[in-house]
C-alpha cells in the first residue's frame, strides 16, 4: 500500500480528517525550508505538500508566486527539491509527500528521469497544475510506472459531465479547489462545501482534500468536517513572509512561527469530529 493510501486508511480508523500543510521549496533558503519540512510531522502534519518554484505559476496568487521567486533566488531547482525530500526521508518514512508545481520544470528535467528520481527520493504523489486529464499522456504513464500518485484538481467549474472523467484520472486523493479563483484570495463558506463535496463523493471512493482559501484553524476544521483533508498553503506562506527581515532572510522566529501555526491547525483538525 502506498504511503498516501496507508495514511488515509489509518486516519479513517482514527475517525478524523487530515491536515496537509504546504511549504515552498527553498523559501526563503534551503536550510530553513528543510527545517520547516522536518518539523511539520511533529507539529501535526498528516501529509505534506511541497511547492516546486516556477517563474510563472498561473493558478497561484501573489503570496505563493512571491514564495516561488524567493525560492528561485535561493537557488531552488527540481533536483534540489528532490534532495530535500531525500533528507526528510532519512528521518520519516511514513508521512506522505506530494509535490505541487507546473509542467515546464519537469519537462526540462526529463519526464522519465524525473518520475524515477522522484519516486526514489521518497515522493508519493504529484499535483501538476497545468497538466489536465486531456494532456495526461505527457506525464501520467511515466508517473504511474514509477508508482507515483497523480492527484487531480476538481474545481467548482468542473461540471457534472466532466467530473467522472477527471476523477477517473486521479489516484491517491482528490484535491477540491474550493473557490473559483487563485490561491490565497477568498474562502468558500461551510454551506458551499456542504453542497460541493457530496457531488464529488458520488463519483469517487478516493479521499477528498479541500484547498484554496483554507486559512484559519476554524476553516481547516470546517474543511475536514465536509471532506477528508484540509490543505493550508497561502496562510502559512504569509506567516513565513512576515518573519523575514528587510532583505527577505529568515530570522530566529521563522521556523517556530510556521510550525506553531501548523500545530494550531492540527489541533483544530483533530478536534473537528470529536
Amino acid at each position: 500500500m502506498s504511503r498516501i493510501a496507508a495514511r488515509f486508511a489509518a486516519l479513517k480508523t482514527e475517525g478524523r480528517g487530515a491536515l496537509i500543510p504546504f511549504l515552498e521549496a527553498y523559501d526563503p533558503d534551503p536550510a530553513t525550508s528543510l527545517a520547516i519540512l522536518r518539523g511539520m510531522p511533529g507539529a501535526g502534519a498528516d501529509l505534506i505538500e511541497i511547492g516546486v518554484p516556477f517563474t510563472d505559476p498561473m493558478a497561484d496568487g501573489p503570496i505563493i508566486q512571491r514564495a516561488g521567486l524567493r525560492g528561485l533566488k535561493a537557488g531552488a531547482t527540481l533536483a534540489g527539491t528532490l534532495a530535500m525530500v531525500r533528507d526528510f526521508r532519512t528521518q520519516d518514512d511514513a508521512t506522505p509527500i506530494v509535490l505541487m508545481g507546473y509542467f515546464n520544470p519537469i519537462m526540462s528535467y526529463g519526464v522519465d528521469r524525473f518520475c524515477v528520481d522522484a519516486a526514489a527520493s521518497g515522493v508519493d504523489g504529484l499535483i501538476v497544475v497545468d497538466v489536465p486529464p486531456e494532456e495526461s499522456d505527457v506525464l501520467v504513464p511515466q508517473a504511474t510506472a514509477a508508482g507515483l500518485d497523480m492527484i487531480r484538481l476538481v474545481a467548482p467549474t468542473t461540471g457534472d459531465a466532466r467530473l467522472p472523467m477527471v476523477l477517473k484520472a486521479s489516484t491517491g486523493f482528490v484535491y477540491y479547489v474550493a473557490i473559483t479563483g487563485i490561491t490565497g484570495t477568498r474562502s468558500a463558506t461551510a454551506t458551499d462545501l456542504a453542497a460541493a463535496i457530496p457531488r464529488v463523493r458520488a463519483h469517487t471512493d478516493l479521499p477528498i482534500a479541500i484547498g484554496f482559501g483554507v486559512r484559519t484553524p476554524a476553516q481547516a476544521a470546517e474543511a475536514v468536517r465536509a471532506a477528508d483533508a484540509a490543505v493550508v498553503a497561502s496562510a502559512l506562506i504569509e506567516r513565513l513572509a512576515g518573519t523575514l527581515d528587510a532583505q527577505g532572510r529568515a530570522t530566529g522566529s521563522t521556523v517556530r512561527t510556521v510550525l506553531d501555526d501548523v500545530r494550531a491547525l492540527a489541533e483544530a483538525v483533530r478536534g473537528a469530529r470529536l
Binding site: A59, D130, E134, E135, L153, T157, G159, R162
Partner: peptide
C-alpha cells in the same frame, strides 16, 4: 482535435480554467 500542431499546442491549463476553454 486536441489542439495540437504536431507535438505543439494543446491545452495545458489548470482544471479551474479547463471548462472555460472548452
Amino acid at each position: 482535435d486536441r489542439g495540437r500542431f504536431g507535438q505543439f499546442g494543446g491545452r495545458f491549463v489548470a482544471e479551474t480554467l479547463m471548462p472555460l476553454i472548452l
